[in-house]
Design a protein around this nucleic acid. Sequence first.
DNA 1: GCTCTCACG
DNA 2: GACGTACGTGAGAGCC
Length: 933
Amino acid sequence: MTETDTTAATAPDRLFLVDGSGYIFRAYHSLPPMTRPDGTPVNAVLGFTNMLMKLLADMDAEHVAVIFDKGRKTFRNDIHPDYKGHRPDAPEDLVPQFPIIREAVRAFNVACVEMEGFEADDLIATYARQAREKGLSVTVVSSDKDLMQLVREGVALFDPMKSRPIGPDEVHEKFGVGPDRVVDVQALAGDSSDNVPGVPGIGVKTAAQLITEYGDLESLLARAGEIKQPKRRQNLTEYADQARMSRDLVLLRDDVKVPEPLDGFTVKAPEPEALRGFLVENGFKSVLAKVEGDLIPRPEDGSGAAVDPVAEATTAEAAYTLVQDVETLRAWVAEARADGVVAIDTETDALSAMRGGLVGISMATAPGRACYIPLAHRSGGEGQLDLGGGGDEAPRQIPLEDCVAELKDLLVNPGVLKVGHNIKYDLHVLARVGLEVAPLDDTMVLSYVLDGTRLGQGTHGLDDLAKRHFDHAMIAFKDVCGSGKSQITFDKVTLERALDYAAEDADYTLRLHRLLKPRLVEERMVTVYETLDRPMVPLLAAMERTGIKVDPAVLKDLSRTFAARIGDLEDEVHRVAGHPFNIGSPKQLGEVLFDEMSLQAGRKSSKTGAKSTGADVLEDLAAQGHDLPARVLDWRQFSKLKSTYTDALVEDINPDTGRVHTTFGLTGTSTGRLSSNDPNLQNIPIRTEEGRRIREAFVAEPGHLLLSADYSQIELRLVAHVADIAALKEAFHNGADIHAITASRMFGQPVEGMDPMLRRRAKAINFGIIYGISAFGLARQLSIARGEAQAFIDAYFKEFPEILDYMEATKAEARTHGFVRTPFGRKCWTPGINDKAPTMKGMAERAAINAPIQGGAADIIKRAMIQVPDALAEAGLSARLLLQVHDELILEVPEAEAAATEALVRRVMAGAASLSVPLVVDTGTATTWAGAH
DNA sequence: GCTCTCACG
DNA sequence: GACGTACGTGAGAGCC
């Protein structure tokens, strides 16, 4: 292949010419406003820096320069004073960034050129010509169509927006002619954004057609008389000089006496200290972390320079150790003790926190430095798969009890912080082998407190975070254990594979901890994390482990009752319909109701446009006297109760404990509330008589009672507090019936003997206020006209005018920051608040109004929960917290302690926050949850 | 895996 | 004046 070799040997040097001004505007608009510590805006600088780094990393060239515009006046303004005259001034917060961006270019040791009186495009044209004459191959990096005229043999354009080269074909696509005729087309068509006049009535299409036919601009103007269309002929004659002037405007000068010689563009490595200085001055820690150890050396430990933990977390190489003997384990324990921080992670043989058995433990002591301690693996690693032949000889592992003995002190050592990702899970697993863990940090909770639902929900998984913060793809669980039917449990994984997977989890947990923990201080989230969410981790773990006793006999009995009702209702519905069909299918039900029976549909469902069969629609139809919708509503109710509750809950009873153990989610909601899943014990029925009976299955142990304690009107009290509504605060201080008071003020009736209908309406409005009221929503809730609902709202605002200020201030806060804060400092993110679509924006605004209220209530009950165990212990009481349902706590108490515990819980909950309104707590005790409420 | 419906606060 | 919504969750069933 001599030919190829020859070509390679004579391949010309390459030159990249970057249109810096284009980069600046793109960078500015791609990032939200941000400032460096001294207050200087730097979003465009950061965006530019990242784009420049990417370009330098991706390009394959020996020479590079970034070219900028300098000032607004150029020689073109002498030709045509209005040229680019309508361009608005650069945004105020971009102006101070222009000089810093020049610094960025120099910091990377890249040539940076600009020249008074000329546009960047002219300099680019000039350098391109010079380079071509020297035999260099030129790539111009720009998305600007005005540069397309430069494309020719040896000069290519690269569009950084679309990441694609622009050659003669792309130019032809854009202008309808080749690169050498682009200026002629532009001269005719003009450019309104640059104030290039062109010829009236001629756009790019027509211009291309004319130039193709006549060859070039001068030939066309000379032969303008031959044009058939009279108007076009006249314009080309009349505006010939204007066309020539336009051509002078768009034609790039390639003979500029450039200030820097081409030789100075040779690619050079950056000066480490200059680059570091620039990045540090602008607070670009993430960029520094990226280039450290690569473009510039990491400061050495011995030199006295501080190691940047963030940088180290980002760049450290991984080296993992398998721990199969006690000696090695002791070395790791000693290292962890010396460091004072260790990341831990457990591997189990089942996903369920309550059932999974411990298979192994991983620990990390520094970024990239981690180990895995296999404890219950059944396959060594010699053979790939156990083919069922009984050859699963256990590999060499430290006996579980020896490992527990070695780790016990470390895990409770107050001088060693244990870091986990969703460590609540590990607490359960370790507790079952007799290990407690304290103190602890949780990187999932850290991520939630810092970034919340800013980037969407459910994005605090270790895999997500490693990808987001370190651009690292974690080994997927399914790549280790498979998925679906062929999935194996972790104890069957070979030790080598288990080491890679498990140690990586601990490693990246530690890296995340180094990255996220310092942000608490920088972003003023220390208090929320330290006093609210971190203490919840061990507390919730204890609640989950305790569980709540559920009597399967009660549930089975209810299932039978419900089944009978469902059967009867089904027969009746089918009889009325005239044929059997699946009542549970909204599609089939819709066909029966709206097609066969020709009932009037109330509304369309949101997504698919199908006619809704929702409860409100069926209720309307039932109220009109139709029998079938009423039966369907009953059928639905019993089906729901049976499938979701009575049938499902029996399956959720843990055979070992006879109790149901939910998992509380601490990092899932946008407001700071908890969630409950598998099963959800926060939505057990109560509103209907039949549903409420399900709560009879939730029982206390013999000799005990369930204590329920709930906040009265906590969200409305928070409204009164945060919006500082005088009349509402007064009503709460007086302990009055708040809805009756509201009705009295709005409708001018005395509280005594208040019409129940008016009170109901006032109650709906009070709820609406909490939700960020809208006339549409209130109208739907109360089944009244929108105008009437609006009148109610107006009346409310008149009586409680402070609420309007709160709503406006909250929306403004959300718009400027992207989040709102609860009274306790929690950030609630408000994605969509600046959306163009009014629907989206409206939803985000209502969510923003609701968030400090709902979130504030969530903060308050968390404060109460955290105090309860200590208060109980101090009082010598042995009650245990079982559940939290947003404004309610459920405890299990020895009968003899019921009264004392009730008083204590009331006191703690009421005193959990000092607002400008009192907090009131209602309590009750009984042997079942139904009775305690 | 998405949509609808409905249980709770 | 249109846009098309009350806030926050999780689970089961139907359907592709």
